[in-house]
């Protein structure tokens, strides 16, 4: 279980996250929704150790993550698939996958995970020796998720996986996320696509200007009058 307790993050004078707490239970999909600038990316970058919080703590199964270095957090299994994918552009598809499983824990499972990624995304097997930069947007997102799987996540954090994709691909990405949960992965999903991500979420949080204003079961949050008014425009 991933636990975020009273997290506060500031960029200079700007309060990016104010006393945010949340839990991600094993085997669940937890969605964090909110508008641009609500602090979603700040939240998962802080969990990943890229940003140092002003106060608050983060735990994975009781182990404290705050204070650890970014690569150490990734190595124990808190793996992020970042916004806009951030692939290694001058590496091939295959190299992008290998490079995520350099650390010892992931390296032991490298062959098995590679097979799993190729079975989830057969197109990546076809594109194996192409440079990542030559892939289409959808393929790049698949590679980014595949790369995350190679790092052997105990929890996989997806930042805006549907961003910039055609509607049909958006559907596909959300199906993949559900498929990943079926395979036993725990998922923290950060999305601007409120309707889709709440539909597949077991539990959800709504973030507004750095504060968690609403939480509950995915469907409950989806049907909450505030959500409907603020995000779904009905």
């Amino acid at each position: 279980m991933l636990e975020v307790k009273n997290l506060t993050v500031r960029y200079g004078a700007f309060l990016a996250l104010a006393d945010v707490s949340l839990k991600v239970e094993d085997g669940q999909i937890v969605s964090i929704v909110g508008a641009n600038g609500a602090g979603k990316t700040t939240l998962i970058n802080t969990i990943s150790g890229l940003i140092t919080p002003e106060s608050g703590e983060i735990y994975l199964d009781g182990q404290k993550l705050t204070g650890m270095k970014g690569h150490e957090i990734a190595r124990i299994g808190v793996v992020q698939v970042p916004e806009r994918r951030k692939l290694f552009p001058e590496m091939t598809v295959y190299e992008n996958l290998l490079v995520a499983s350099i650390h010892r824990r992931a390296k032991k499972e490298r062959q098995k995970n590679l097979e799993e990624v190729f079975s989830l995304f057969p197109v990546l097997r076809e594109r194996r020796d192409q440079l990542a930069i030559t892939l289409s947007g959808g393929e790049q997102q698949m590679l980014a998720i595949g790369r995350g799987i190679m790092a052997l996540p105990r929890i996989l954090m997806l930042d805006e996986p549907s961003l910039g994709l055609a509607p049909i691909l958006v559907q596909q990405i959300f199906q993949i996320v559900q498929e990943l949960r079926k395979r036993g992965l725990t998922i923290l999903l950060v999305e601007q696509n409120v309707k889709h991500s709440l539909r597949i979420a077991d539990y959800a949080y709504v973030l507004e200007t750095g504060k968690a204003v609403l939480e509950g079961l995915g469907m409950d949050v989806l049907n909450d009058p505030h959500t409907v008014e603020a995000y779904l425009g009905r």
Partner: peptide, 24 residues
């Protein structure tokens, strides 16, 4: 080699490399 790939990854995108467990 994995070390070589790690160095190249760190060169191409330091943050992404960190997120993949590479000590940049």
């Amino acid at each position: 080699t994995d070390t070589g790939r790690g160095i190249r990854a760190a060169a191409q995108d330091g943050d992404a490399a960190t997120l993949m467990g590479i000590d940049v």
